[in-house]
């Protein structure tokens, strides 16, 4: 089976993030594999172990993303592709990403493509479904379980806390939700082996794309941090007075009533 994983290198939202001139400060931020993509890598490896085939992990980014690709290889993926846009693209959006991936998959036979449900940095959740549309593949989002039998896939997906069961056929694109699996830690032998696994680097030129073809359709106007949490207020006095004060504060200060 030809298994592909779409992987994004993102900053860790659990860590402190600094913004300077409307850009995330690279220096301070900690970079990781987008956690939902980690589920995708784990599931891809499990599918390969059960059904045979190869797992290819694809990312669009710059040289720094090699670290995350190597980590996926260390977990057990067979090969990786870095589509390096550093020299060609200043900006990109979901359209850019999908356009590049569409070109990438143009001459590849994918039986299944696994992506994350969202990338935790921009959280659009668009890349998976939009790519499936362009490739004319079935698409199931936010999956929490998948079993494949021949050309049929039985899937459970998370629907706002409820479970929906779906039967569909390959080729297929799925986006992975928390609960699908427990991603493994890359083992030491895995890390050492990853060194020798193929990591192909492409530029958009290699995919017969021009800069104009992938120009973003949207523009980021501003990036800013949420306002700092204000210190709480403890009300004092008789219970009745406290309730009155609370209501009035909710009206006048918080303006939620």
């Amino acid at each position: 089976m030809n298994i592909f994983v779409l992987l994004k290198r993102t900053f860790d939202t659990e860590e402190k993030i600094a913004i300077n001139n409307g850009r995330i400060e690279d220096d301070g931020a900690e970079y990781i594999i987008n956690p939902y993509d980690e589920y995708a890598v784990e599931e891809a490896i499990n599918i390969r172990d059960e059904h045979g085939g190869e797992v290819t992990v694809v990312t669009i980014g710059d040289e720094d993303a090699e670290k995350q690709l190597r980590t996926a290889l260390a977990m057990g993926a067979d090969q990786a592709v870095l589509i390096n846009t550093e020299d060609d693209l200043e900006e990109g959006d979901q359209f850019t990403t999908v356009k590049i991936l569409e070109a990438f998959f143009d001459d590849r036979e994918a039986d299944i493509i696994l992506a994350g449900n969202v990338a935790i940095d921009e959280a659009s959740g668009q890349v998976g479904p939009r790519l499936a549309e362009r490739l004319n593949m079935s698409c199931v989002t936010t999956i929490t379980s998948i079993t494949i039998d021949g050309d049929t896939a039985n899937i459970e997906r998370d629907v706002e806390g409820d479970v929906e069961k779906v039967e569909t056929s390959l080729p297929l694109l799925v986006t992975c939700q928390q609960g699908l699996n427990e991603p493994r830690y890359p083992s030491l032998p895995g890390i050492m082996k990853a060194k020798k696994k193929p990591l192909e680097e492409l530029e958009i030129d290699d995919l017969d794309l021009e800069e104009d073809d992938v120009e973003p359709k949207t523009k980021t106007i501003e990036i800013f941090l949420p306002p700092e949490k204000q210190a709480g207020k403890v009300l004092e006095g008789e219970m009745d007075d406290q309730v009155k004060e609370l209501v009035s504060l909710l009206k006048t200060e918080a303006k939620v009533l």
Binding site: K67, R70, T71, A74, Y185, P186, K195
Partner: peptide
């Protein structure tokens, strides 16, 4: 090296 970095990250996560 990348292997050293990756190992550190893995052990950090595991720990």
């Amino acid at each position: 090296t990348k292997e050293q970095e990756m190992t550190r990250k893995m052990v950090q996560d595991f720990a």
